[in-house]
């Protein structure tokens, strides 16, 4: 009797001890999580480090002139980033000018106008635009969009503006092939729309409904609610969303490589081909040797720094509203 109860006692004491893992596992688990989290830090630092390491010879060779020089001559081993930098900025700017109003419109439609049953399918459709691989956008841009763009926009517009000062330069296509800076910007606009729209939608959703309702209550129209309640309330975080789109547009590679034309020349016309930092790296890196490789790495370094600054600013602006 005594032995039996003792045995039961011992076994009941042992069970929980056996089930719980030893303390060392708890410790290892904690360290592993911390290590994985730190890996994010290390990778980001590694990307910057590898760009600087690879680009240093080019920076040392050309100095500050690397950024301002527009020469890119493989034969003479002379490299400058200016054309690619300007191309990157112009395409991204075009993307914002076209993409931001559309994104805001979609966000307003989803949060204010859309009937509830339609909300989910429409939101999913827009989000799926972000899931389409960028190479598919490139194929669509080059084989479907560019011919239509050349025929219905470039040729008529070029004819119309020919001879007019300034506009006649900016919007004149000497070779109306459909590819060029403007086409790349339009494709980029389509690609950043889902990102900007979904963040703006989240921002609108966070605004307390009572603000909207009270505005509607005193007889405001939807336009007035959007203009005087939603936009002021959302404030700088919309700029954050836009900058996030900018960050995406700056670094987008494959789609741009298809439609930008990949020419190293500075042209005043938006219809002319150019190149961006990312498209130049994609095009030349595998065949590059020596100093050209370093110059491409240096381009990558510039791209990293620019996108990093833009993305940090974007996150800070968006975080400001979330904290409120």
């Amino acid at each position: 009797m005594v032995a039996l109860s003792q045995e039961r006692l011992v076994s009941s004491m042992r069970t929980p001890v056996r089930r719980s893992p030893p303390r060392t596992f708890d410790h290892v688990f904690r360290i592993a999580s911390l290590g994985s989290a730190l890996l994010v830090l290390i990778v980001l630092a590694g990307i910057l480090g590898s760009m600087i390491y690879g680009g240093l010879p080019a920076f040392r060779e050309f100095g500050f002139g690397f950024i301002t020089s527009s020469v890119w001559d493989v034969q003479r081993d002379q490299y400058g980033a200016w054309v690619a930098v300007i191309g990157t900025l112009t395409t991204a700017l075009v993307a914002l000018v076209i993409g931001v109003p559309v994104s805001l419109g979609i966000a307003i439609f989803l949060t204010q106008l859309c009937p509830p049953w339609l909300k989910r399918p429409v939101a999913t459709t827009i989000e799926l635009l972000a899931a389409v691989p960028s190479i598919i956008y490139g194929m669509w841009g080059l084989f479907v969009f560019a011919p239509l763009f050349a025929r219905f926009v470039q040729i008529p517009v070029s004819k119309l503006v020919e001879g007019i000062p300034i506009i006649g330069t900016i919007l004149y296509a000497s070779v109306p092939s459909g590819v060029g800076i403007l086409t790349a910007g339009i494709i980029l606009a389509v690609m950043i729309i889902p990102f900007v729209a979904s963040i703006t939608r989240d921002i609108f959703d966070q605004i307390p409904p009572v603000l909207r309702e009270s505005a509607y209550g005193i007889g405001c129209t939807t336009w007035e609610v959007v203009r005087h309640v939603l936009l002021p309330q959302a404030g700088v975080s919309i700029i954050g969303a836009i900058m996030l789109g900018l960050g995406r547009a700056l670094g987008e590679t494959m789609a741009v490589t298809f439609v930008v034309g990949n020419a190293n020349r500075l042209s005043a016309s938006l219809f002319d081909p150019g190149s961006t930092i990312a498209s130049r790296i994609a095009n030349e890196f595998n065949e590059a040797l020596g100093l050209q490789l370093n110059a491409l790495m240096a381009l990558g370094c510039i791209l990293f720094l620019v996108t990093f600054i833009v993305l940090v600013a974007a996150r800070l602006l968006i975080a400001r509203v979330n904290a409120r």
Binding site: A37, L44, G46, G251, I281, F285, L311
Partner: peptide
């Protein structure tokens, strides 16, 4: 530390993928 990692993770989320290619090439 967590705040910093969270922040940088969001940056990495939107970082140009071609730069990740260059990084792994070097690495």
């Amino acid at each position: 530390l967590a705040e910093l990692i969270r922040f940088l993770n969001d940056i990495l989320l939107a970082a140009p993928s071609i730069l990740i290619g260059l990084f792994v090439y070097t690495l």
